[in-house]
Simulated assay, not measured.
Amino acid sequence: MKLVYPALFTPFEDGSGGYTVEFPDLPGCVTEGEDMAEALFMAEDAASGWVLTELEDGNPVPHASLIQDVTAEPGQFVSLVALDMDAYAAKYGSNAVKKTLTIPAWLNTFVEQNGISCSKVLQEALGKMAQARQ
């Protein structure tokens, strides 16, 4: 699942080149970086972690505001931050739920002969279905 959220970047008051980053659509999701590159990296990581926690808790993914609807104060700016939730969840996701799968015997033979992981195929298919409904 790919998501994009607007983020509000506020320069550090000391003029050091760092930024605080907030996500208006993700309450309490705030991070910072010592420069623009680190701020962007930290923003993607913080927002991905926030969304993953919501998904693992069974909550819906918040809808993203339009970038033009996010108001920046003087000195601030708004930028879009892209999230790859599939990659993030594969790396950091902790909650797994065991499901029992029933398939025809001939299909099970095919799966075993070809070294296919039913769990992986099901996860990928369900992920695509979830993304299509967003």
Rank of each mutant, 00 (worst) to 15 (best):
1 M>W: 00
1 M>Q: 08
2 K>F: 00
4 V>L: 11
5 Y>Q: 09
5 Y>P: 10
8 L>C: 11
9 F>R: 02
11 P>N: 03
12 F>V: 05
13 E>S: 07
14 D>L: 04
15 G>N: 03
17 G>E: 01
18 G>F: 01
21 V>G: 07
22 E>T: 15
22 E>L: 07
23 F>V: 13
23 F>G: 15
24 P>C: 13
25 D>K: 02
25 D>R: 04
26 L>K: 13
27 P>H: 07
28 G>R: 07
34 E>G: 08
35 D>N: 15
35 D>G: 11
36 M>V: 11
36 M>F: 14
37 A>C: 01
37 A>T: 10
37 A>F: 12
38 E>Q: 14
38 E>R: 12
39 A>F: 05
39 A>G: 03
42 M>V: 00
44 E>M: 10
44 E>L: 02
44 E>N: 11
46 A>H: 09
46 A>D: 04
48 S>M: 04
49 G>W: 03
52 L>S: 11
54 E>P: 06
54 E>L: 14
54 E>W: 02
59 N>R: 12
61 V>G: 02
65 S>W: 05
65 S>L: 09
67 I>E: 12
68 Q>G: 01
68 Q>S: 07
68 Q>F: 13
69 D>E: 14
69 D>K: 11
69 D>W: 05
70 V>E: 05
71 T>G: 02
72 A>K: 05
75 G>E: 07
77 F>R: 05
77 F>I: 03
82 A>F: 02
82 A>I: 07
84 D>P: 07
84 D>S: 08
85 M>E: 04
86 D>I: 12
88 Y>I: 01
88 Y>G: 09
89 A>C: 03
90 A>D: 14
90 A>P: 02
94 S>H: 00
95 N>T: 11
99 K>W: 03
102 T>W: 02
104 P>C: 05
104 P>E: 10
105 A>F: 15
107 L>D: 00
110 F>S: 10
110 F>D: 05
113 Q>A: 15
116 I>M: 08
121 V>W: 14
121 V>D: 01
122 L>V: 12
124 E>K: 13
129 M>P: 04
129 M>S: 07
129 M>E: 11
130 A>Y: 12
